[in-house]
């Protein structure tokens, strides 16, 4: 009983009154409200999903060392002792910072973690993988000519079958990611603008539909602030609920992408796992969407309130 009367008391304060009638309007216009929320949710979810993907791809960074290294595949006849010796000899070069020898057994172990090689090994009766030396270069520039010359020189060694500069693509990926993340910001900005316009237009329509209420409130001496209030609340509700919807969409998308991503990463021998939004990022999305709702409503209200309050004066 006490709770009921408290609720009732709040319902008849200027703020409670505004909130009550905004909620009532939004639930009366259920389909329109839902559609608007969907548009807002999607416009805010898209940039969030893109930026989650970019952040994840960034975390793929294998470190400069790995990206800056050459892989030397050795002939099958080279044994572990010869491999280790060769690795330490190469490490003494000025243009190589360090080396690491990957034995044939180690290669097989890594490989078979992702693929079933048991059959192949059974058939062949032996390990089909060669040993390898990973050599990290001393300089970190992208001078293709220098890297090509070094590769050529190293592949001329009698123990080496061929040299690969695999991880070059990662560097390129990072350069590309830089571009993509700027594009995400740009598209995100445009989509946020879209959400702003949608909310603004929705509130504009709501004001037209509730013009009787505006006129009567004006008549009985409601201040501009009081007349504005329910529409700002509507914008706030749209923004907040749209933000929640966007979070759900992001969460759903990340969930859907997580399985395939893990599979793909497994193929490349990576334990990479797609991570979603953390608490701070989720909070930021909610804050942005709420602000967008409020701003959209504010513009709509500013645009229209004089006309609806004083139809006679606008002519």
């Amino acid at each position: 009983m006490a709770a009921l009367s408290l609720k009732q008391r709040f319902a008849y304060t200027p703020r409670g009154h505004a909130l009550r009638h905004s909620l009532a309007y939004l639930s009366r216009a259920r389909v329109a409200t839902l559609l608007t929320l969907l548009v807002i949710g999607i416009s805010l979810a898209l940039p969030a999903i893109f930026s989650v993907l970019v952040t994840n791809l960034r975390s793929l960074d294998v470190g400069n060392e790995d990206a800056n290294s050459l892989t030397l595949y050795l002939h099958m006849r080279v044994d572990d002792l010869g491999g280790v010796e060769l690795a330490s000899r190469i490490q003494q070069r000025d243009d190589i910072r360090m080396t690491r020898y990957v034995s044939r057994d180690e290669a097989l172990e890594t490989f078979s973690r992702h693929f079933s090689l048991a059959d192949a090994v059974d058939t062949l009766g032996e390990n089909p993988l060669p040993g390898a030396i990973i050599a990290v270069m001393a300089t970190e520039d992208d001078d293709e000519a220098r890297i090509a010359a070094l590769s050529q020189e190293l592949s001329a060694l009698p123990e080496v079958e061929f040299v690969k500069y695999d991880l070059r693509w990662l560097k390129r990926l990072h350069a590309l990611l830089e571009l993509v993340s700027r594009a995400v910001w740009l598209i995100g900005g445009l989509l946020v603008m879209t959400a702003l316009l949608v909310i603004g237009n929705t509130i504009r329509l709501e004001m037209l539909r509730r013009s009787d209420e505006i006129a009567v409130s004006h008549l009985v001496g409601a201040s501009r602030r009081q007349i504005r209030r329910p529409f700002l609340y509507s914008g706030l509700i749209y923004g907040f609920a749209g933000g929640l919807l966007a979070l759900c969409l992001v969460w759903l998308s990340v969930g859907l992408l997580r399985g395939p991503t893990a599979e793909l990463a497994g193929l490349y021998g990576s334990g990479f796992e797609l991570s979603g939004l953390n608490g701070a990022q989720s909070g930021l999305i909610l804050a942005i969407s709420t602000l967008v709702g409020l701003t959209g409503a504010w513009f709509a209200v500013r645009w229209q309130i004089t006309r609806l309050c004083n139809p006679g004066e606008s002519s």
């Binding site: 009367s5 009732q8 008391r9 319902a11 008849y12 304060t13 200027p14 009154h17 009638h21 009532a24 309007y25 009366r28 209420e213 009567v216 409130s217 009985v220 001496g221 409601a222 201040s223 009081q226």
Partner: peptide, 19 residues
């Protein structure tokens, strides 16, 4: 969109009276 009571109450709500 509201009942008779709320219609009549409007000026008082806007003037900030208690429930």
């Amino acid at each position: 969109d509201r009942n008779v009571f709320d219609n009549v109450a409007l000026p008082l709500v806007m003037a900030g009276y208690s429930f």
